[in-house]
Design a protein around this nucleic acid. Structure first.
Length: 597
RNA sequence: GGCCCCGUGGUGUAGUGGUUUAACACGCCUCCCUGUCAAGGAGGAGAUCGGCAGUUCGAGUCUGCUCGGGGUCGCCA
């Protein structure tokens, strides 16, 4: 070994020992005849001292050393002289007096300073190997390692079996776009990369493993976001002979355990459960951020008697009037409301109406009410409204009217936006919850047919299974999401394990027998040989880690992420391939052909 | 596919009602300095402003196109 100890592992107990360390030069401070050099390795940094009076040859060589050079130093550990200690770092009470210096490799001046957190992401990605040297990225990826290890150990202790499933699988186009891999052996035929190991893990249940898990790579050829990469890592687990509560329990106990270990927080189990319909009503979204209140209320009865046409038309057209109250904030200027209105309109809404009062509710007169629709309101109505919300004049009521889905969606987005802008979010909170009772189907207006809301394998619950025949929109699935702080961390369900039910679901979403057979034949056939009832979840690991770390983008918890246009700036993927490769695969570009773009 | 934002020395920014030696901080180079750790001091090099085209006497600044990055809607079972 080039080193006896890690730079960050040397301490007062090692004083007077002669040791070797090796690593990268983190920084240097040249005082002329005295040179300090901070050496960094994976364990931390240590200060190395080159004293011209002690060894002028070493000192001269050291003077030429620059940041990121790789060196090895043999030296004697010394307690720092009094007054020169640095209590801010773990090795701040000792230093290494160099005896022997070996330059293992020099370095060009890096394109950016390693621990500068204000560097353009393009540059960081292009020089990812340097970016990954930073304290932040080292911390993030090491936490990722620890967390995944903990998950594996935890589930292992619960008798789960880690089983790898193939990356080259059959394409079953449905839902997301598949990534496709051409087959050389079968010209004109293609593999797909798995969007998730869904069918395979269900089949493993049929095979009798009972408790399966996998840290699985999943691939989707869809547009990217801060929280979406073309490939992401999922904790995939599946259990046999379980009810929904058993699956939820496994998940919440694991995540509570992880929170305890990595956040130092006791998150009590069970996590709150909220039904999909309630979540939509209260928060305007199926992934509510419950770190703040601002709950949405139905104001139809309160505001049905005005002369305001927007309200009346909304009610007449089977729409709704909803709103929530928010503490007054100095940012609420005229311009603020203009922007908010535009924000709502950009999200499909008609607008948003504030109502506020200037005095205590019992003292107000009509002129104390502030609202753009003041002429349609009367004193008693406004008093009634504020009493309904149980608020005083330090709060503002924001109201939307129109089609229910749009109103709730807009209010949900405004709710998040204002909580963020007004700093109403306690960043230390981690509010895990389950959203349950999702509908099994949603109507796809564009294609005029029913589509699976989650995926086609989720089972209908017993109370609503009869609606499968005539009213699929009313069927509720044994289907749930794990949500934390407004982020969807994963979802799962109790699966269908009976062929007839599965075929019924396929028929509702319009698959004919051929399609079913082609895409799901093997799984359905396996159900004929004694499939146990089973269920499980797929949980996004990248999102979990970024949530734990407070990172805005999952790119900062992934070693080599891709850009929004799915490019890898470091390796240069995707790239063109040799004609020879194409010939072998029997593929050619069609960009010059008719009809191709 | 739509919308929005960004692109100026190595890094981060300023400069955008048209004319400047294109400014500042960090970094880099040289010299001084024996207790620094955001070291300090003195000096210096380095950008024709993502690219192309246009408007103009004159463009970092205006217009169009384009490339790259980011955010978002669609999309993501």
């Amino acid at each position: 070994m080039y080193k006896d100890k890690g730079c960050g592992q040397v301490n007062l107990e090692n004083v007077d020992q002669v040791i070797n360390v090796a690593g990268w030069v983190d920084s240097w401070r040249d005082h002329g005849s005295l040179l300090f050099l901070d050496l960094r390795d994976s364990t931390g940094t240590i200060q190395i001292v080159f004293d011209k009076g002690v060894n002028s040859n070493n000192h001269e060589i050291a003077s030429s050393i620059r940041n990121e050079w790789v060196i090895q130093v043999e030296g004697i550990v010394k307690k720092r002289i009094e007054g020169a200690e640095n209590p801010n770092i773990s090795t701040g009470y000792i230093e290494l007096n160099a005896k022997k210096l070996t330059i293992l490799n020099s370095s060009k001046t890096p394109p950016f300073e390693i621990n500068n957190e204000n560097v353009d992401e393009t540059t960081r990605l292009k020089y990812r190997y340097l970016d990954l040297r930073s304290n932040k990225m080292q911390k993030n990826l090491r936490l990722r390692h620890e967390l995944i290890l903990e998950i594996c150990n935890y589930l292992n202790n619960k008798d789960f079996v880690h089983i790898e499933t193939p990356i080259l699988i059959k394409s079953t186009p449905e839902g997301a776009r598949d990534y496709i891999v051409p087959s050389r052996v079968h010209p004109g035929e293609y593999y797909a990369l798995p969007q998730s190991p869904q069918q395979m893990k269900q089949m493993l249940m049929v095979s009798g493993f009972e408790k399966y898990f996998q840290i699985a790579k999943c691939f989707r050829d869809e547009d990217l976001r801060a929280d979406r990469q073309p490939e992401h890592t999922q904790l995939d687990f599946e259990m046999s002979f379980v009810h929904q509560e058993d699956v939820l329990n496994n998940c919440e106990k694991l995540y509570s355990h992880l929170s305890k270990k990595f956040l130092g927080q006791d998150i009590p189990v069970p996590f709150p459960r909220i039904k999909y319909a309630e979540s939509m009503e209260m928060y305007g979204t199926d992934k509510p951020d419950t770190r703040f209140e601002l709950k949405i209320h139905n104001l139809e009865s309160k505001l049905s008697g005005t002369d305001f046409n927007v309200f009346n038309n909304a009610l007449k057209n089977n729409g709704t009037i909803r709103g929530f109250s928010v503490p007054k904030n100095e940012k609420m200027t005229r311009k603020f409301y203009d922007n908010l209105n535009e924000f709502v309109r950009n999200n499909g809404g008609a607008g948003i109406i504030p109502v506020s009062i200037e005095k205590n509710i019992d003292d107000i007169q009509l002129e104390d009410i502030k609202s753009p629709i003041i002429k349609f309101l009367d004193l008693e109505l406004v008093k009634d409204l504020f009493k309904f919300f149980d608020i005083e004049h330090d709060q503002v009521i924001l109201i939307c009217a129109g089609e229910k889905n749009i109103v709730l969606d807009c209010l949900g987005k405004v709710r998040n936006k204002l909580a963020y802008e007004f700093n109403l979010i306690d960043q230390k909170k981690f509010n895990f919850l389950f959203v349950t009772d999702f509908p099994l189907f949603e109507f796809d207006n564009e294609n005029n047919k029913w589509a699976a809301m989650h995926h086609v394998f989720s089972s209908p619950n017993n109370d609503t299974i009869d609606y499968l025949e005539n009213d699929p929109g009313k069927v509720i699935g044994n289907l749930f999401d794990l949500v934390c702080n407004g982020v969807e961390l994963g979802s799962g369900s109790i699966r269908i394990h009976e062929r007839e039910v599965q075929e019924k679901v396929f028929s509702i979403i319009g698959y004919d027998d051929n399609q079913v057979n082609e895409r799901f034949g093997p799984l359905l056939e396996s159900f004929d040989y004694g499939a146990p009832p089973h269920g499980g979840m797929g949980l996004g690991i990248d999102r979990l880690i970024s949530t734990f770390l407070g990172e805005d983008s999952i790119r900062d918890v992934i070693s080599f992420p891709k850009t929004q246009s799915a490019s890898d700036l470091l390796w240069g993927a995707p790239s063109i391939i040799d004609n020879e490769q194409k010939l072998e695969l029997r593929i050619k570009n069609i960009e010059d052909e008719k009809g191709a773009k």
